[in-house]
Structures are given as structure tokens and as C-alpha cells.
Amino acid sequence: MDYFWELFFGGLTRGSIYALIALGYTMVYGIIELINFAHGEVYMIGAFTGLIVAGVFSLMGFSGASLLVLAMVIAVLYSSAYGYTIEKIAYKPLRGASRLAPLISAIGMSIFLQNYVLLAQTSDFLPFPALIPEFDFMEPYIDYLGSSELVIILTTVLVMIALTVLIKFTKIGKAMRATAQNKKMAMLTGVNVDHVISMTFIIGSGLAAVGGVLIATHIGQINFYIGFIAGLKAFTAAVLGGIGSIPGAVLGSLILGWTESFATGYISSDYEDVFAFCLLVLILIFRPAGILGRSTTQKV
């Protein structure tokens, strides 16, 4: 039974990280119907920034929780700035173009950012310091739930609550929901749509950076390529839950996390990534709108 719980919490941890990334995909898709292919790269840049900040400040004498918070805050700041800039360069000039154009531009952006980090940093795996301390009170549960996993899950829950509050109760959240429903109508009622789109990119990128730093310190190593697979899986999760729907993204991420965790635990670990993609293909075939998504009929 211990093995089951170990896999269960492993899956929950994975799912939490996927959820943090998937939210960025789903929010952007909800507002401008674009698969932001470069989102995985923003997550990767978040992890790298976290590593660099942690490295520099640990030499200055910081350690433990303060170092984690510092790395996280700066990583979020930078990833948001990247998200904002990416939107301005690669997507904004293409508004109103065909659907294919922004998607290709997004793929180009993703390749560019990967190689930018590769050239600016390194192509090797870099060890990431363990920023999350081992808690004493977690001692009895160490077999199936580590301290860093606990921190990841709790952080994700907190972030989700904050995001829900932001979207439900603030002015910018209201503007976001209005833009997602009908861009033109929102514009007519005085919503600054450009500003809303920028904010969506900023928030989504910030969430991805939180995920990036947390998973990097949990796993202990990063390289320039981590964003590709993580982004793909988080996108799978977003589609699974119904793209454009925020609770859907969280639900999809958890399902994906558990599927991967149990499948690798009980079947085979060689095909870890294959399970995720098979799940994606199956979902899209049988329920293209996702679990919580509504299928819309296109009207002419």
C-alpha cells in the first residue's frame, strides 16, 4: 500500500507542476485562441533564472527558505517579462492573420528561446541546488511524501486560490473574462483588450516560473530542453480538461500526473512520455472538447 501512496503523491506533485504550466496555456487560449508554443520555454527560463539567482545569492550568504523565496520572486519577475515581450514580438503583429501564422511564429519563438538559452548558458544538465529544507515533522511520512513534494502541492493550492480570487473578484479578472467571451463586445464596453492580453501573458508566465523553480529544486537538475516536454505535457493536460477552462486545466493536470505516475510505477518506466501522448490522442479522438470544455458549433 505504501507503494500506492508513493505513486499517488508522486502523481499529485507532477500534476501540480503541470497545472501551473497548463494554466498559462489555457488562459492564453481562452483569450486569443492561440496555442502559445513558447510557453514551455518561459517555464524553462524561469527555472534557469531561479538557478542563477540561487547561485549568486548563495555566495552572498543567503540560504534556505529566504533563498527559495528570492529565487522564486525574481524568476517570476523575469518569466513574466519574457512572456510580455514574446507576445509583443511574435503574436501582436499577427493579430487578424490566419490561424496558421501565429502558430508557426510561436514554434519559431520556442526554437529561438531554446537555442538562446543553449548558447547563453550551456547544453549540459546543470545541477540545481535543493532549496527546500527537509522538515522534521515530515519524518514519519518520508516513505511516500517528501518535504519538497509537500511544498510543491501546498504552493500550487495557494497559487490556485489566488488566481481564482483574481479572476472572480478583481477588475482585471472581470475584463479577462469579458475578453474571453467576446473580444469585440469587451472593447465596446471600454475594456483595453491589448492590456488584458498582456496581463494574461504576464500572469501565465509567472505561474509557469513558479512551477519551473519548484520542479527544478525537486528534481535537482535542469537543461535548456526541459521546457519542450513539460510544455507539451502541460498542453496535453490543458486539452484533457478542456482548453480555455481554468478548473479544467487543473483537473486535466491531476489526471495526467496520476496516469503517468501509476503507469510508470505499475507498467514500465521506459515509456513514460508515450503514456501522456497516447492519452492526448485518445482524448482528442473521443472527446475533442475535453472533460470540462463545452463543444461549440461554429456559426457562419
Binding site: L100, T236, V239, Y271, D273, F277, V281, L284
Partner: peptide
């Protein structure tokens, strides 16, 4: 199975398929 999907979904599924073939 996948050609019923809209353009951007198709892109992701084909990407996933390419990865599956390589991983296998």
C-alpha cells in the same frame, strides 16, 4: 482519427505522434 480536429489540435497530435514513434 485525428483529421477531424481543428488545425491547432492537429499540430499537437502530430507532434505527439512523432515523439511516440521516436520513443518507441
Amino acid at each position: 482519427p485525428v483529421l477531424r480536429l481543428r488545425g491547432d489540435y492537429l499540430a499537437i497530435v502530430t507532434l505527439g505522434f512523432g515523439e511516440i514513434i521516436r520513443l518507441v
